[in-house]
Design a binder for these strands. Sequence first.
DNA 1: TTGGCGGTTCCGGAATGTGGAACGTCGAAA
DNA 2: TTTCGACGTTCCACATTCCGGAACCGCCAA
Lengths: 264, 264
Amino acid sequence: MTALAQHEVLETPRTAVSSSDGSTSVLKALQLMDAFRNGSRLLGVSDLSRRAGIHKSTAFRLLATLERGGYVERVGTKYQLSLRVFEMGNRVELCKPSGLRDVALPFLSELYATVNRTVHLGVLDGGEVLYLEKIHGHRAKRLPTTIGGRMPANCTAIGKAMLAFSDKETVMAVLDQPLTRMTPYSNNHPGRLVNQLHQIQVDGIAHDREEVALGLICVAAPILRRGRAIAAISVSSPTAGFNEALVGEQVRTAAQGISAAMFD
Amino acid sequence: MTALAQHEVLETPRTAVSSSDGSTSVLKALQLMDAFRNGSRLLGVSDLSRRAGIHKSTAFRLLATLERGGYVERVGTKYQLSLRVFEMGNRVELCKPSGLRDVALPFLSELYATVNRTVHLGVLDGGEVLYLEKIHGHRAKRLPTTIGGRMPANCTAIGKAMLAFSDKETVMAVLDQPLTRMTPYSNNHPGRLVNQLHQIQVDGIAHDREEVALGLICVAAPILRRGRAIAAISVSSPTAGFNEALVGEQVRTAAQGISAAMFD
DNA sequence: TTGGCGGTTCCGGAATGTGGAACGTCGAAA
DNA sequence: TTTCGACGTTCCACATTCCGGAACCGCCAA
C-alpha cells in the first residue's frame, strides 16, 4: 500500500485546480472524490490530500463536508465512498430505466445463457471503452475488465466496433494519440486499424484476437442508431474451442435486438 | 443566507443546508447532484435550482463548476450526470474488484441460467434495500426494481433475509418507522414481521409472497459473515409454476457459495 | 403586445474558505 | 528506551470567494 501510494503520487499531477477562476472549494471536493479512483477502499486524510493536491487541513474540512452530504463515509479516521455514490452512478442517463443499460440487460443475460461466455456492454468515452455491464460465470478466464472500468479503444473488440461506426472526429481523436499496446498482438498501427475499421463496416462484427490478453479472443457488434454506434456488446472467450463465426452472428443478432428495442 | 433559509423552508424540507456550519458551496453542489434523483435525464437550471432549494444564479454557477469537474454534462442549456459519475459509483467498496458485487456476479449469472428468472443482489442501507445487481431476461415480468434503486426492507425477501441476520439496532430502526405497504399482502405489521424473521433464522430462506407486486413471488437467502448478513440474493418469479422449495434451496446454495468465495 | 419563464450576466458586500502553524498520538526506527 | 516522522485534528487572521438581488435577453403562449 505504501508502495502504491508513492507510485500514484509520482505519476498523477492530474487535473489540478486551475489557478484562475471558479469555485475552488467545490472543485477541490470533486478532486477529493476523484482521489478514490485508484486507491484501495479506505484512505486517510493525508493520503487523500496528497492524491488530490490539496492542503491537508483543507482536505480534512472538505471530507467532513462530503460526509455531511452523504457522499463519503467515515470509518475510524479513514474515508470511503458511500453507497449513495453508487446509487447516483446508476442514475446516469444510460443506466436508468429505459436507458441503454436497462434495455440491454435481458439481451445480455440471454446471450450469456446461450454462449456461456463473458458478455460485455460498453460505450466510447474520451477515446476509451467504458464498460457498463459485464456478465460472466465461474469458468470464465479472469478478465481485466470491470463494470465502470476502462480499456483502450484500439485493442478491444467493443472499441473497434464502435469506432467503425463513429464520425471521423471521434476516430481521429483516437488515432492522434499513441495507441496503447496490451499484448504483442495489440493493434497499435494506425493504418492497420483504419483497414480493420473498414472491414468491420462491411461485416458488422469486430474482432480482438489476443490483443487484450494472451489466449483471449473477443467478438463485438455495435448497437446502432441511424448508422451511428452508441454502444457495443461483445463476447470474450479463451481461444480454444471458440466458434468465432457462430458467436459473431449471435452477438450481431443480440446487438440488433437491442437497437430495435431502444429506438423502435 | 437568511433569505435562502426562508426559501428552503417554504418549498423543500429535504436535506436543507443546515444553517450552522460547513462549506455551503460544496453542500449546495452535492444537493444539485441529488436533484437528479427523480427527474428525467435532462434538467434545466431553474428546474434544478428549485429541486435543490438553491437560488438560480447560484445553481447556474455551481453547475458550471460541476461541469468543469466533469461530473455533469451540458447539452444545450440542460444538464445531466456524466459517465464519470457512473464510473465513480462502481468504485464504491462493494463493487470494486474483489468486492462483493464482483465476487457475486458469476454466482448470479449461473443462478439465472439455472432458474431462468430474475435474480437480485442487494444490501441494507438506511432501513431500505439497495440493489447492487439485477439479472433478468425478456420473459421476466417487468419489476419495479433497478440497479442502484431502493425498496422498503419490510416487504422484500432480500430485506427480510438480511434483517433476520442483523443486529437488533438495525431491526429496531426499521420497526420504529411506519412499515411501507406496496400491496394488500405487504407485511406492515411489526409483530408479524418479527415472527417471520424468527422463522427465517431457522430456515435460512426468506419469502415475499405478493408483497411487492401482485402475482410476484420471491425467495431470498442472506450472504453471511460470522453469522451477520452483509447482503442477500433473491430470485423473483410469477407465482404460477414456481417451485418455491426447489428454488429456495438453489438460492441458499448460491448465497453460501458467495459467502465462501468472499471470506475463505 | 404583453406577461411569464428560462438562461445568463453583473456586482458590491460580507460571509466563507484558506493554509500555515501547532498539538497529541502512534508506530517504527535508532 | 528515546527519537523521529507521519497522521489526524484544531485554531485563527486574512482576504479570497461566494452569495443573491437585480437586470437583460430570447422565447413561447396568451
